[in-house]
């Protein structure tokens, strides 16, 4: 959902808040494990999308999951619930090292 456009609210006035991504910051920082999908194995069933508590999974044009790593907390529910084991659990430090290579 895109937030509505509105005039800048007078936030000093009262304790009102507006919907916006990152209300708790970039929660991807919390992650210890990173989900990595094997797009060959993935059947596009969307179970990972359904279970993601962080709405951090979207399906791409080929119906494969895309992880929003800025916000994915790495709970790995997607991994354990994948019926074809297409998602693997990679330690964040190793994943970053792999990316750097």
């Amino acid at each position: 959902m895109t937030p509505l456009k509105r005039n800048p609210p007078n936030r000093r006035f009262t304790c009102i808040t507006y919907p916006e991504a990152g209300a708790m910051g970039l929660t991807g920082d919390w992650r210890i494990f990173r989900p990595v999908v094997d797009k060959e194995k993935c059947t596009g069933c969307q179970i990972c999308w359904m279970y993601c508590p962080d709405t951090a999974i979207t399906m791409d044009e080929n119906n494969k999951p895309v992880f929003n790593l800025e916000y994915c907390k790495g709970c790995m529910i997607c991994e354990t619930n994948c019926p074809v084991k297409a998602i693997s659990r990679v330690r964040e430090t190793e994943a970053e090292a792999a990316v750097e290579k």
Binding site: L4, R6, P9, T14, C15, I16, T17, Y18, P19
Partner: peptide, 17 residues
């Protein structure tokens, strides 16, 4: 004029500050 509960312009009141 300050705020109200209205699905057309969603805002919350009272979450953690």
């Amino acid at each position: 004029e300050h705020w109200k509960l209205d699905p057309k312009d969603p805002m919350a009141t009272g979450n953690i500050a």
